[in-house]
Nucleic acid binder design. Structure first.
Length: 276
DNA sequence: AATCTGTTCAACCGCAATAGT
DNA sequence: TACTATTGCGGTTGAACAGAT
């Protein structure tokens, strides 16, 4: 009964990683790809638990990590996504190529929180700090209905009283007020883009998609900002077709993208919000 | 130069979700 | 369906560092 420990704690190193450990981990993943984290340490000759190896790889060693300072555009994108998703750091990270959930979480707590407070905005609710009491406002109710094996999600906007701040449907409200056409479909990038990685051949074997996922990340930063048609777009793909396996299955004819989130008139697809 | 204080961020921990049997 | 194993996520911690005193 109970959970077995993730590793033999008596025989594992903890704390900061050494250069040698990093090299071993990189070499092993280059040879065998990601995945099987539980057995990886032993196979790689590391005295670490699998969790620790995974964290080290994802947050520090992955070749596609951007590192360096966040740009103003990234700041604003994080704020918008946080207002939408709350502390769903992995989802937010999925919209910022080269950034990790841990990095964004740290950055939020050390920089953006303060930035919002200085603006007089409550970072938890994204509302003015001096706002008191529950506001009477338009909120969004999302109904889920099965359709042809895939859930169709429609939006019903109605007048209700809500107190936002929690993650979930209520958390969507502030954004929906500002962006009524916003489609909240989120397509999560894999840890790094196959075409950029020497590990690509291994990668897809070890990163099975969860339902509703998509096989590639592949969006340039412009696309992530919803600027697929921008001259700055460097990925050269239609993110709707190239990315989402989606749901609506059609291209972006009737809608537009905001933050890389597809929008169609009156019909929003929230399903992928459930995806991790 | 020494000490204190605040900040940053890599890493850990516990739990939930998911996959496998 | 129930159970176990494994992975992934979010909250938290603490060492390292920078700036102030």
């Amino acid at each position: 009964m109970g959970r077995s420990p993730c590793c033999e704690k008596a025989h594992t190193n903890k704390g900061a990683w050494t250069k040698e450990e990093d090299d071993r981990l990189i070499a092993y993943i280059r040879a065998h790809g990601e995945g099987c984290w539980r057995s990886l340490p032993k196979a790689a000759g590391l005295l670490r638990c699998g969790k620790s190896c995974r964290l080290r790889w994802i947050n520090y060693l992955r070749p596609d990590l951007k590192r360096g300072n966040f740009t103003e555009e990234e700041d604003e994108l994080i704020i918008k996504l946080h207002s939408l998703l709350g502390n769903k750091w992995s989802l937010i990270a999925g919209r910022l190529p080269g950034r990790t959930d841990n990095e964004i979480k740290n950055y939020w707590n050390t920089h953006i929180r303060r930035k919002l407070l200085n603006r007089g905005i409550d970072p938890a609710t994204h509302r003015p700090l001096n706002e008191t009491g529950p506001a009477q406002e338009t909120s969004t109710t999302i109904s889920f209905a099965a359709s042809g094996g895939a859930a169709t999600v429609k939006e019903e906007v109605e007048k209700t009283t809500t107190t936002s701040g929690s993650v979930g449907k209520d958390c969507i409200n502030p954004v929906m007020e500002k962006c009524p056409d916003l489609n909240l479909e989120l397509r999560i990038s894999p840890p790094y883009q196959q075409q950029q990685s020497v590990l690509a051949d291994h990668h897809h074997h070890h990163q099975p998609l969860k339902s509703g996922g998509r096989p590639t990340g592949g969006l340039c930063f412009s696309c992530s900002l919803g600027l697929q048609n921008s001259k700055d777009c460097s990925c050269g793909i239609d993110s709707m077709n190239g990315g989402s396996t989606s749901t609506t299955g059609s291209s972006n004819i009737n809608g537009y993208d905001f933050l890389g989130l597809k929008s169609n008139i009156n019909v929003l697809d929230y399903r992928s919000l459930e995806m991790k």
